[in-house]
Computed example of a mutant assay.
Amino acid sequence: MSGGVDSAVAAARAVEAGHDVTGIHLALSRNPASYRSGARGCCTIEDSNDARRAADVIGIPFYVWDLSDRFHEDVVVDFMDEYAAGRTPNPCLRCNEKIKFAAVLDRALNLGFDAVATGHYAVLKDGPDGVELHRANDQAKDQSYVLGVLTQDQLKHSLFPLGDTPKPLVREEAARRGLLVADKPDSHDICFVADGDNAGWLKEKLGERQPNTGGSIVDESGVELGTHTGTVGFTIGQRKGLRIGVPAADGRPRFVLDIEPVSGTVTVGPKEHLAIDHISGIRPLWAGSAPTTLDGSVQLRAHGDEHRARITVSSSTNEPSVEIDLHDVAYGIAPGQAAVIYDGTRVVGSATIASTRRVSQ
């Protein structure tokens, strides 16, 4: 129970379904104010109090589990390491993989519970090969992308009670149940970045570990257009905040095309030069049996478009990999992001993007 409306209603529905429910709030920082203040994330004292009040209304036991050390090592440090290496990670996927459906689920099973229920918007179905993870009925709130790291063993012990309900109806239900979080705003941004300034947070936390403390912003021919104070402040596809004093010859906006963390060079150019048609992925995770080839689709951002693709899985056992040929080009895709693979509405699995291939200009 994060302290938001979704997990509160999910807990209430689990009780109505006949389950013996215990509410758990995760303490992810020993000093919550150092990660997030206000109602924008899931790491605050206010959120813990909101979750406790919701549990009282529902009538279930409530506990706070301190997973701050594990969260720091598996999510926060990983986030810093990936940016320091010039990649763009998604900490929400890592949190689901390492915390909510690994550390929490493992502890729950050891304590005799059968499953972990959350307020994620996704649907579980029984399939011919086990439990299948599908997109939520409300496409605008679908969160199957951030659950694309779950394995079959984890899905067997998961419940997503909200997957068939549009978000406005969830809020109405919360109000009917007397839950004070009915109108609480949704959380946004990265929960452990206190003010939403990812670049500033990274520079402060990395300190001397930054790959560089400055460098050049250049065009594709290598002409310097400006300077910067650290590549951790950039990501592939970024348009705003480049602070380039020299306008493009055609007057069109420039986008970050490439980041070289060792030299500190950031290359910029027109949007069409961000177009990619192939992705190589590593560290695949499968929701069921791994396919050999699949004509399906991939989603490359939490709220991104779905791209038709042909997916080919390596048969190597030492370094399993995934090759994705896109039928619809994608823009601004960076190494470190996740490619979640779908067959219709069903999540097949996911892979971490290692490299991309630009469309020939």
Results as ranks from 00 to 15, higher is better:
A117Q: 11
T118D: 06
G119A: 12
H120L: 05
Y121G: 10
A122P: 12
V123F: 09
L124Y: 07
D126P: 02
G130P: 02
V131F: 09
L133N: 07
H134W: 03
R135T: 01
A136G: 05
D138A: 12
Q139A: 14
Q139G: 04
Q139V: 12
A140E: 15
K141M: 05
K141G: 02
D142F: 01
Q143F: 07
Q143E: 13
Y145R: 05
L147F: 00
L147E: 03
G148Y: 09
V149D: 04
V149F: 02
L150G: 02
L150V: 01
L150K: 08
Q152V: 03
Q152W: 10
Q152L: 10
Q152Y: 09
D153E: 13
L159Y: 10
L159W: 12
L159P: 03
F160R: 07
P161A: 09
P161K: 11
G163F: 03
G163Q: 05
D164A: 14
D164Y: 15
T165A: 10
P166A: 14
K167E: 06
L169G: 03
R171F: 04
E173K: 06
A174N: 11
A174C: 05
A175R: 14
R176Q: 12
R176L: 11
R177A: 14
L180N: 11
L180Q: 10
V181P: 01
K184F: 05
P185C: 13
D186P: 00
D186A: 15
D189P: 06
D189H: 14
D189W: 13
F192H: 05
F192L: 04
F192C: 04
F192E: 04
V193Y: 06
A194S: 15
A194M: 14
A194D: 14
G196M: 04
D197G: 12
D197M: 13
D197N: 15
N198P: 00
N198G: 08
A199G: 05
A199D: 00
L202F: 02
K203N: 10
E204I: 00
E204L: 06
K205P: 00
L206E: 08
L206G: 13
G207S: 09
Q210E: 04
Q210C: 10
T213P: 02
T213A: 14
T213H: 15
G214C: 10
G215H: 08
S216A: 15
S216K: 15
I217V: 12
I217P: 02
V218A: 07
D219E: 07
G222C: 04
G222S: 04
V223H: 13
E224L: 05
E224K: 14
L225H: 01
L225C: 06
L225D: 01
L225Q: 02
G226K: 09
G226S: 15
T227P: 00
H228L: 01
T229A: 15
T229D: 15
T231L: 02
T231D: 03
T231F: 06
T231H: 08
G233T: 02
I236W: 00
I236D: 00
I236F: 00
G237I: 04
Q238C: 01
G241P: 03
R243V: 10
